[in-house]
């Protein structure tokens, strides 16, 4: 399986990545190579192997349901590009 230049543009758009038109071919080639590498693993019989969800052989630690965070809005909003009336402001989003 290979990645086409059209697919590169689609993935870039979904990930909101800006790429230069003259780089599309190279990305298509590089990504195709990665896919080919992964495809080699398909040759291995993995019938009885449970797919790994995480490289660590451990399970999720759970937290007690307790409110431990305090309001730090003022602090957080000093690093926001724009905030007003307690709200974070972003360019107008029209549905």
């Amino acid at each position: 399986m290979s990645i086409t230049p059209e697919e590169v543009l689609k993935i870039a758009n979904l990930a909101r990545l800006q790429i230069k038109p003259d780089e599309v071919e190279q990305y298509a080639k590089d990504l195709s190579n990665i896919i080919h590498l992964v495809e080699q693993m398909n040759a291995v019989d993995t019938k009885d192997i449970q797919p790994m969800a995480h490289p660590l052989d451990a399970t999720q630690r759970l937290r007690e349901d307790e409110v431990k965070e305090e309001n730090q809005r003022e602090k957080f909003q000093t690093i926001a590009p724009a905030a007003e009336q307690g709200l974070y402001l972003v360019p107008k989003v029209i549905e």
């Binding site: 307790e66 409110v67 431990k68 965070e69 730090q72 809005r73």
Partner: peptide, 22 residues
Amino acid sequence: QSKIFSGASTAYGAEPNTQACA
């Protein structure tokens, strides 16, 4: 009482962004 992945409160109707932690 708290969020699924953080210790911020889930109470409804608070002042905007006062229950949104890092």
